[in-house]
């Protein structure tokens, strides 16, 4: 699936209520959006620095400012850590709210465009 397809699915989950996804969409959205961001980044490295795509995410995020625009790198790092935090189980923390997910969705949609350029 392309980053855009994943983002579309996340968007659907955010507004659509079905029996199977009822109450489960917040984390599911987070994973889909995060995966969209990771795939966008994979595509970016494929063009710029193929070896980087083999590294775990943290080194990738550390490498990014050296290649991409500073603001793009910063937003990528923020969005990924935020989504990761939401997607993992954390003691005492509840699933993200619709507003948070909507905000990540917008950020990642923009980032997929920025990284594709």
């Amino acid at each position: 699936m392309t980053p855009q397809q994943l983002l579309n699915e996340a968007d659907q989950l955010l507004v659509r209520s079905t029996l199977d996804t009822r109450g489960r969409w917040p984390r599911a959205c987070a994973w889909l959006i995060r995966l969209a961001l990771e795939k966008a980044l994979d595509q970016y490295w494929a063009r710029i620095l193929p070896e980087a795509a083999l590294c775990p995410m943290r080194p990738q995020l550390l490498l990014l400012p050296s290649y991409a625009a500073a603001s793009t790198a910063e937003r990528t790092r923020d969005a990924w850590t935020g989504l990761s935090r939401a997607a993992h189980h954390h003691a005492y923390e509840l699933a993200p709210t619709a507003a948070e997910i909507r905000s990540w969705h917008a950020t990642v949609t923009q980032l997929t465009r920025d990284l594709a350029m």
Binding site: L13, R24, W31
Partner: peptide, 19 residues
């Protein structure tokens, strides 16, 4: 969840399993 594409489903199922 049949209304989700196979790949997306695999992603979120794996996410819940990890959680």
């Amino acid at each position: 969840a049949r209304d989700l594409p196979e790949e997306a489903r695999a992603v979120v199922v794996a996410g819940f399993c990890r959680s």
